[in-house]
Amino acid sequence: MMSVIIYIAVMAGVTYLVRMLPFTLFRKQIKSQFIRSVLYYLPYAVLAAMTFPGIFYSTGNTVTAAVGTLVALVLAYFDLPLIVVAIAAALSAFGVGFLV
């Protein structure tokens, strides 16, 4: 088993370079409309794939997780702040945990 420190160093190094290199070196806009479009959609696709189906296994119980997911979807749909959506999802999953 590799040392966790090495993993963390690699993780931090890559994450920093991804931010630092363009911010320090690039001063012009990317010309290719295709690449710009891919980069535009990428964050949404990444977060969506990270969330589903992972969210259903995030509480250790599929039913409480599904309720939390539903609450998060409804509150996010009505543009509630990130913190409210996150806490409400956890609280609702916790509350339903007493019933199932």
């Binding site: 509480t59 998060a72 979807l73 749909y77 543009d79 996150a86 945990g97």
Partner: peptide
């Protein structure tokens, strides 16, 4: 039981980031 349900918080934030622009 409480800490387990808090694992959903990050996912909740992800949903809150992507749904309004969608």
């Amino acid at each position: 039981m409480l800490t387990a349900t808090m694992g959903i918080m990050l996912y909740g934030m992800f949903i809150a980031i992507i749904l309004p622009p969608a």
